[in-house]
Structure formats: structure tokens, C-alpha cells
Computed example of a mutant assay.
Amino acid sequence: MSPTLLLTEQLISRPSVTPNDEGCLEILAARLGPLGFVCERMDSGPDDFRVSNLWAKRTSTSAHARTLVFAGHTDVVPSGPLEQWSSPPFTPTHREGRLYGRGASDMKTSIAAFVVALEEFLAAEANPDIHIALLLTSDEEGPSVDGTKIVVERLRERNEPLEWCIVGEPTSVQKTGDMIKNGRRGTLSGKLTVRGVQGHIAYPQLARNPIHQVVPALAELTAIEWDRGNAFFPPTSWQMSNIHAGTGATNVIPGAVMIDFNFRFSTESTAEQLKKRVHAVLDRHGLEYDLTWTLGGQPFLTTPGELVQAVQGAIKEVTGIDTELSTTGGTSDGRFISQICKQVIEFGPPNATIHKIDEHVVLADVEPLTNIYRRTLELLNAGVAKA
């Protein structure tokens, strides 16, 4: 069995459901220490939701060195009903050329592949011209308050420069290397309460129905073209996720209606612009309302440059695939890292089974992932050496 597969199985065996790390970081630190990495814990959060964070860095002696970071998370989502799994979710199991277990795809295989790639790279290049670091957390699948966000804040406080970052999220579709994410849309949520006057449904003149009042505004909001996107992002979208009103009785006009909605927005719009436009619509319709906003993450974009070219080149050399750049999907910890790092991309194995019962990774995808990470290290190091 390959070193990457063995380490992946070690990590899967730890039931590290958010925010619990269950010793995964200790396993990884034990591998990184002998390679010259200084391992620093930055755990954070209250006692009942303590998050484990690791910042591990190997410093180059080169005067021109720049830093490559690999970012990942050891936490996984809950397994769901155990009886629906074909094998126990935290017992690594091989069947028909696949490795089953919670976290196999999201994202313990990526972490193991990068660590093994580092070992192979440093065995051949004892004094590289790049700094190498790992940022690992046990709070990516949860609130994401005391994980990567905290580490980024501390790195910013001490002015630690980061040049490139690879987030090991499972981005591929059919085969490892067919897609990388060079950005993500922002996410902005709103919780809207429109107030009316409760009353008997037979006497509407004595009440004010907030549902009737808000419907024209909602129709207008659904029809707005917020922006047209750009070469890397689809147009910004506005979607309602929940509407609730009424007491449960069929003869009562409700006194309020509550609506949850969300923007997934491109770099063509800002959160403040979107808020302003929503308020303008609601005000124009004369609604009596409260609206609270939650900014889940700003959009980020890494245009093709050194990092994108290195990863694309490594994928092509290892697999022969011309990879696709994409900004689709949900958010990731890249939204935090991009605040202090110039170039951030996400790349990992296929994501078809993430968060599902019987999550797995195809064994044939594991070694190419390791080889791509190692080749990326080599290409970036060579580029710095030439400069």
C-alpha cells in the first residue's frame, strides 16, 4: 500500500467530526517535525467547542524565498445513519477499487497526499528556495469562526507574508485534475421580517396582510439582474430559502412574514451595493420591515499566474489533462486566506461523494494527486530559483 493511502487510512480512522480533531494534527505534526517544520498550535474557542489549529512552517535559507501554503481541514461532517453505510464510516474499507470512509474525499486524502508529496520533494531537494507551510484546522465544516479565520488573523498581526496557497478541497469532477477552483463567489444572507397587522381573515379591512404586501417586492427582487458576471464568475444570484408566516390557523391573517434569502455574488458586485439595492426595493414598496445581514465571505479570484500555471502544468505532466478553471460551488476557507495571500487556488480529488453516505475516493486517483502536489512544489521552487 502506498504511503499516501496508509496515511489517509490513519486519518479516516479518527472520528474527527467538527470541532473535534481526534489526534489528526498530532499524527501530521509527527510527520512534519523530522522534515524541519516548526509546528505551532493555535487552538481557539470555548471549552465546549474547542477548535484545533496547526500552523507548520519550514523556512528556506534563500534570500529570495517566497511562501507556499497548503491549507486543509481535519474535521468531517457527521456520518448520518450508521445503518445506511455499507461499512463503518470511520473504518477505512476497500471495495471495488475504492477507499470508503468519512473524509476520504473531503479532505483527508488531500492532506495525506500533500504530506507525502512534501516528504518526497524534500528527500530530493534538501535546501529548497521556497518556504513551505501548512495551515490545518478542525473547524471548516462547522461555524468556521475559530479555525482558519483565527490563524489568518494571527498571521496578519505578525506580518507573515504568504505568496501562494493551495487549499486541498475536493474540486475534481470525473478524474483528479480535471478541475481546479481559482476563486469562489461571496455569500451574503439576509433575514427579512415584514410586519403587518394580525386579524380575522373574514375582516381584512381591519388587518394588514404582510404576505400580500411583500409579494410584489419579492417578485421584483427575483427579476433583478444584479450583474452579468465576468470571464471567471457567473452572474450574481439572489435566492429565497425559507418563507414563514401565520399561526397555523386558516382563518387568521398573520401579523408578520419572515423570509430568508441569500446572494452568491461575483467580483462584479460588492456586499454594500447589494444591500443598498435590496433596501431600495423594500422601501419603494412602502414595507414596514426589519432586515439583518450576515456576510459569510467575500468573493476572491486568482487570475492565471505563477500558481495557476504551476498547478495546471503539474496536472498536465502527471495526467495529460488540460484542467478547467472554475469558481462554482460553495464557500471554503480560501475566503479567509485570500485576505493575506496573493494567489489562492483549490485543488483535490473528485467530489461526487462528499458529505454523502458511503463517501469514498477512487484508489486510482490517490497517487496522481500526490504526484501533482509534488510536481507543483518542484515547479514553484524552480521558478524562484531562476528569479
Rank of each mutant, 00 (worst) to 15 (best):
T250I: 14
S237V: 15
N242I: 05
E225M: 08
P234D: 15
R228Q: 13
F261M: 07
R228M: 03
V257C: 11
A256Q: 11
P234H: 15
V252P: 00
T250D: 14
N230C: 01
A249I: 12
T236V: 00
I253H: 04
S237K: 09
S241E: 10
A256C: 13
N230V: 08
I259F: 04
G199I: 07
F263L: 07
P216F: 07
A217G: 01
F263A: 02
P204A: 15
R208P: 00
M240W: 11
M258D: 15
A202W: 01
Y203W: 02
M258Q: 14
Q198I: 07
G255V: 15
Y203Q: 15
F232T: 01
T247L: 05
P235A: 15
L221F: 12
N262W: 03
Q239C: 01
P210W: 08
H212V: 10
N262K: 05
A245F: 04
T236K: 00
H212G: 13
L218F: 09
I211D: 05
T250A: 14
P254C: 13
L218R: 06
M240H: 06
H244P: 00
V252L: 13
I259A: 07
I201C: 11
P204L: 06
I243L: 14
V215A: 10
F265Y: 14
R228P: 00
G255M: 12
E220R: 14
F232W: 10
A217I: 01
H200E: 13
N251K: 06
N251F: 11
T250G: 15
P235F: 13
P235C: 10
A231P: 00
F261W: 10
Q198Y: 02
E225C: 06
I243T: 13
I201A: 14
L218S: 09
D260F: 02
I253E: 03
Q198C: 03
L221S: 11
V214S: 05
P254G: 09
G255A: 14
Q198P: 03
I224T: 13
T236H: 01
F263D: 02
N209V: 11
V257S: 04
A231M: 09
G255S: 15
N230T: 00
N242L: 06
A249H: 05
R264Y: 08
T250F: 15
A202M: 06
V252Q: 12
G229D: 03
E220P: 04
D227K: 01
A202D: 11
Q198D: 07
P234E: 15
N262E: 11
Y203N: 12
V252S: 08
H212I: 09
P254Q: 10
G229N: 06
W226Y: 00
H244V: 11
